[in-house]
Amino acid sequence: MLRFIIRRIVVIIPMLFIVVSLTWGLIRLAPGNFYTGEKKLTPAIEKNLREKYGLNRPWYVQYGKVLWNIARFDFGNSLKYEGQSVNQILFRGLPVSATLGLSAYLLALFVGITTGTLAALKQNSWIDYASMVLAMIGISIPNFVLGPLLVLIFALNLFWLPPALWNGFPSKSIVLPALTLSAIYIAYIARLTRSGMLEVMRSDYIRTARAKGLSETQVVFRHALRGGLLPVVSFSGPALAFLITGTVVVERVFALPGLGNYFINACFNRDEPLIIGIVAFIAVTVLGFNLLVDISYGFIDPRIRY
């Protein structure tokens, strides 16, 4: 088990290297620079800027510096937000993204698993059909459509909830973004739960459980859920990683000061250290959560040994 974990952590390093290198390469390949704006700079100023930020050095020196920064988990200063280190910005944006992401995640798990289980237990009933149609819709509506739509209904027409901005947690301001964000995850989890539960409920050991005289509730909760939810587990680890590390579209639509929003700004501004910092952070988180999922499998399914 320990060897398995160490092996997996060691694998994270080259992956991170690849992700960061690709990001850096793409930024460099794109035309323009962080100082290219509406106003044309005089050559003298441009030369000064290039010297200050080391852009006149050979590319491998600059690339090496990037890697060295990553290794120390210190990404340097932002080019746009002057005097602020990338780490400071990460720590400012992360709580917002994480709060929103975690709320959406818990909502998605709760609603998704409940409806998926109900749909499976009442297969081919109206509950089943209704929830699967809703899930289909949830999967096919992109969140940049769903977000504004919810705002239109609940904020601008009914005035129940604020249309945008962040007021911390708990507050009404989190409801619409969390809902928008979780919709597709609810849909996926509901479908995964349904198919997982349907398969388990047909299995021999469920028949055994029924033959013991257990009630249907006991059969479902004691015997069926565990096996039925295995597919959800493998889905929900990476999902959590993506959710808490910021979601570009939703944070933009609702103007929330999270990592996703910083990331877009960084891209517009060509703020190289910030882009790389956020990408590296997301990569590590996603890889880490995948590892957590694999470890948790060992606890859920006793047949799995590392």
Partner: peptide, 16 residues
Amino acid sequence: IAMIFQDPMTSLNPFM
């Protein structure tokens, strides 16, 4: 009334 099934490999709950 108790029952024993055909396939002992799948008739017990593998998670319990």
